[in-house]
């Protein structure tokens, strides 16, 4: 899993039922300070879904979207597990670092 995919997955976990294309791209921008296009986020999201790490559902049409629904993403069990494992392996590495700082 690449850095971008990991970031997006983490963002989805934090966003709690409000994760869709535009909102994820905005969240990414606020967290990292780097800008990203909506189309890039869409690609990442679909890739994550094909890997089975997230799942999606169409809902929540609002006025400001011109009445169109959004694809809301949430992490799947596999997604949560993967992110836990990443965190675990990172922490193991961190723990081996000599505490000089």
């Amino acid at each position: 899993m690449g850095y971008l995919e990991e970031m997006v997955l983490l963002l989805i976990l934090t966003m709690n039922n409000e994760a869709y294309g535009l909102s994820v791209s905005e969240a990414y921008q606020t967290h990292t300070g780097k800008s990203i296009s909506i189309s890039a986020i869409h690609t990442v999201l679909s890739r994550l879904e094909k890997k089975g790490l997230i799942r999606s559902e169409m809902r929540g049409a609002t006025e400001e979207r011109g009445g169109r629904r959004k694809r809301i993403f949430e992490a799947s069990a596999a997604g949560r597990e993967t992110i836990d494992q990443i965190r675990l392996s990172r922490e193991q590495l961190w723990s081996r670092l000599p505490r000089t700082i």
């Binding site: 869709y20 294309g21 535009l22 909506i38 869409h42 169409m58 049409a61 400001e64 979207r65 011109g66 169109r68 629904r69 959004k70 694809r71």
Partner: peptide, 11 residues
């Protein structure tokens, strides 16, 4: 189309 159109509309 729907989701992309919606996202872009919102943006």
């Amino acid at each position: 189309f729907e989701e992309i159109d919606g996202d872009l509309h919102e943006a």
